[in-house]
């Protein structure tokens, strides 16, 4: 499966990836230039956290081999795609219990702050044929995609 690899030292916190993620998942038409960065509807699916020492820690979904989020999901809305290995979310199935939010140890799932009837998580830009938009947009090449063996073991 494909996974986004992170070179933490290369990240300078420019957050181009976050804007790209917001733009890729916005519900309204438009370009990144008219993207409302403060609109909670446009939240990014990952976070860039300052480490307090002048550096940054990019925290992106790992699409884990043994995903605690999907394991916690009582509706079947979260599922590891048997083909791509990515954890995909089916909004229609979701029962909005938010156990997945609690179960992701890296804090990569959040309830949609506006509707509170769905969650926001990385979908690996499943509808784009190319690399995820965050990866494409990083000027420092701090994130890149690699093929990894997906062992479905505990």
């Amino acid at each position: 499966m494909k996974r986004i690899f992170i070179d933490q030292e290369k990240c300078d916190g420019c957050k181009n990836c976050s804007f790209a993620c917001m733009q890729a998942h916005r519900q309204t038409p438009g370009t990144v230039y008219d993207l409302d960065l403060l609109d909670p509807k446009n939240e990014a699916r990952h976070s860039i956290v300052t480490n307090g020492k002048g550096g940054y820690v990019p925290v992106f979904c790992r699409h884990c081999a043994v995903p605690d989020c999907a394991g916690a999901c009582m509706s079947g809305a979260l599922k590891k795609d048997p083909e791509t290995g990515h954890i995909q979310y089916d909004e229609k199935r979701c029962g909005t219990c938010f156990m997945c939010v609690m179960s992701c140890p890296y804090g990569n799932i959040k309830p949609d702050r506006v509707s509170r009837t769905k969650i926001l998580k990385c979908d690996f830009c499943v509808n784009d044929k190319e690399e995820p938009n965050c990866v494409k947009s990083c000027p420092k090449k701090a994130i890149h995609v690699e093929e990894v063996v997906w062992e479905a073991a505990v």
Partner: peptide, 14 residues
């Protein structure tokens, strides 16, 4: 947050 305990494995998992 998790960022304070950040580290990666060879396969890219945290």
């Amino acid at each position: 947050s998790y960022a304070d305990f950040y580290g990666t494995q060879q396969n890219g998992e945290y």
